[in-house]
Design a protein around this nucleic acid. Sequence first.
RNA 1: CGGGGCGUGGCGCAGUUUGGCUAGCGCGCCUGCCUUGGGAGCAGGAGGCCGGAGGUUCAAAUCCUCUCGCCCCGACCA
Length: 571
Amino acid sequence: MLMSQLYAPTLRETPAEAELVSHQLMLRAGLMRRSASGMYSFLPLGLRAVRKVEQIIREEMNAIGGQEVLMPIVQPAELWQESGRWDDYGDEMFRLKDRHNRHFCLGPTHEELITALVRSEVRSYRQLPLRLYQIQNKYRDEIRPRFGLMRGREFIMKDMYSFDQDEQGLDESYWAAFHAYERIFRRCGVEAHPVEADSGAIGGDVTHEFMVLAEAGEDLVLYCPHCGYAANVERAQGVEPEGEGAQVELKELQEVPTPHVSTIAQVCSFLSVQPENCIKTLIYLADGKPVAALVRGDHNLNEIKLRKYLKCDVLELADEETIYRITGAPVGFAGPVGLDVPLYADYAVKQMANAVVGANKGDHHMINANLERDFSVTSFADLREAQPGDPCPRCFKALEGARGIEVGQVFKLGTKYSQAMGATFLQENGVETPLIMGCYGIGVGRTVAAVIEKNYDGDGIIWPISIAPYHVVIVPVSMKDQVQAEAAQKLYAELGAAGIETVLDDRDERPGVKFKDADLIGFPIRVTIGPKSLEQGEMEIIIRRTKEKISVPVEEVLTIIRQILEDGDVK
RNA sequence: CGGGGCGUGGCGCAGUUUGGCUAGCGCGCCUGCCUUGGGAGCAGGAGGCCGGAGGUUCAAAUCCUCUCGCCCCGACCA
């Protein structure tokens, strides 16, 4: 490709719309342009990187017996009504109607479609296992799209679905995908750590997310450097503490006026106490029934844990009116003492003494509240959001925290969809059974963004060879010098013939401009052709990642480049 | 959805408070000269219904109303 022809509009200045480095660089290097909030057009360079990632994914999916299909983006409402997700999915689903007033959505994922596709064709255990995947656009009307490709409303996703006849088969599919994912991300040039996760709206129990650790990540990962436990904060388990906590003298329960003091922070500063001595009382509606959840003032409740513990479908914070009805006080003054709803407390509450709590009375709190003496709870459970420093649930050493970009997730779905949608098969013994499913996603664009987020410097992107849009850029210092131009053309032809993806920067620009663009776009290898070295029969090979410069005799350039590409990245 | 901010040539911005003359600046773009090892220099030039609609006024980028788009923070933590 000739640089003079390549549609790669680079920008000298950083566009105001981008905050994340990867986002800025993708715009500056001319990989993509925004078309609407959360939606992007890929330009040639960006698309080539995307295609490379896709190709790696294809190879690894095929290697575990995956077969590629392509399903429509527009999906009929009926299928989603069958699974119950037409209502569950909410505002995040792009919905539309056709001219006959029939309802459709733009697929946010494809469990329903694939299940419908398979149920009419798979009849027998002899057709299993079946692993189908596609690489397709997905649509989610995100509440707040941001960070370029990190959280878009339209995005490219690889999604595989497995169908097995039993749990063991599912297990095999799951771990096959798991290990394929490890290979995929490694080949793309990033470390992605598998962490235990919550399955969210997709459903299922066993699931791992693959996280690229980066400050820009939207998720918090807790991991144990000692035993290797790693989990998304949504999932990370707490540990039930042993013993009763410190023995201290129980002081007298006392009501104190706290005018206009409703948040933990306000209470602490008003009463000169620490958040860890306060109990937060949160009133929830679990499937419509009021419950109270207690956590220590410096802890956050993990709603996912509470919902699971209560085994309820809908869990939401109670509205002001309900709170007033239940506690007899406006929002901000709820407390466990005398509260007549089921009370569920996080383990940490068990060890508290002389705590500050809401008084269930406007503008009042109580101090020196104590468990059993002043109030009792229905049960204790692991309800709080784990945080760095908490004990590891496996080995009890301190957990550490890191931010992560979720580039992939694998789920064991079980029979959630096959059951709801009647996707069954006949077992060997003739019994009709729902298919056992798994699903496995990779965010393609997000992977590209994550790779950049982990591979850049002050000059621009540093592509790993495996997904670089092009491998080599040839930069003659001056195209007007016949000798250089001819040498450049010759090398360009040679590299092309050798199957090396090369761009020749044939623009009549000053060398500085060409070097800057080459660095910004991030070609792994640059060959500079200048008058001085050429006189000595040499060219310069510059490694983008290390800035290492090697002078090489002209006739050896191809060989050396080949070798560099074969050796892969030096990290 | 709540809060904050921003929409002015392709990009980055000034001008808006206190309405006023041909709406500026840097970069980029075009032509020519010159230059060619890290985003050169000189000269000339093109390009803007100031997001859109309505209104106030002798006069609106500027004031008022409505609207659209984009960015950031937050979204129930009592």
